[in-house]
């Protein structure tokens, strides 16, 4: 292969890498679990401007849904084990979402929410449908094994 072809290829890949490198920080969200988000809140880190991808397990009896206004609210905790093992109320984050209630929203479901922390410490999911995702069926078996 001629050197100029190699230079050309290097330029193309380099340009692409540069585009990604320069633009990614403005478009990336921080992936955190419930305990980490709460730890940041406690240590006074300003969360208001950041976009987070928050994961946690849904607390079934906290789910509130208003079919008229489509306002959905539920709490999530660190993970399924926290739900199963805690006798006291484990640390939790309240999630707010507006839209159709997902089928898979149930106790112990693993939720992935993209959004921002509100001034009162709740977590507001974005408006796009993929701002609130619940683990799809293949994940299902873990729940089955947890309660044989």
């Amino acid at each position: 292969m001629k050197p100029r072809v190699i230079v050309g290829l290097a330029l193309i890949f380099g340009a692409l890498a540069a585009i990604v490198a320069f633009t990614i920080s403005g478009n990336a969200s921080l992936e955190v679990k419930v305990d980490e988000l709460l730890r940041q809140q406690r240590s006074g880190i300003d969360q208001s401007q950041k976009v987070y991808k928050l994961t946690g397990s849904v607390v079934g009896d906290s789910i509130r849904y208003d079919a008229k206004t489509l306002n959905l609210q539920f709490d999530i905790v660190q993970d399924r084990e926290t739900l199963a093992n805690s006798l006291a109320t484990p640390p939790r984050v309240t999630v707010l979402y507006r839209g159709a209630r997902p089928d898979t929203l149930a106790h112990e479901a693993n939720a992935i929410i993209t959004g921002k922390v509100t001034p009162d410490g709740k977590f507001a999911a974005g408006s796009s449908p993929d701002s609130l995702l619940l683990q799809c069926p293949t994940k299902y078996e873990a729940a089955a094994e947890a309660k044989p």
């Binding site: 585009i19 990604v20 633009t23 990614i24 478009n27 990336a28 969200s29 921080l30 992936e31 955190v32 991808k53 993209t114 993929d130």
Partner: peptide
């Protein structure tokens, strides 16, 4: 690279960064 971003950023900085569909669409 974009799919593996959370693993890579966690390995280097301890924080998992992730990008959503709009960024994939743009790039």
């Amino acid at each position: 690279a974009l799919t593996s971003l959370p693993i890579a950023t966690e390995a280097f900085s301890g924080q998992r960064l992730t990008v959503g569909p709009p960024y994939f669409n743009a790039v």
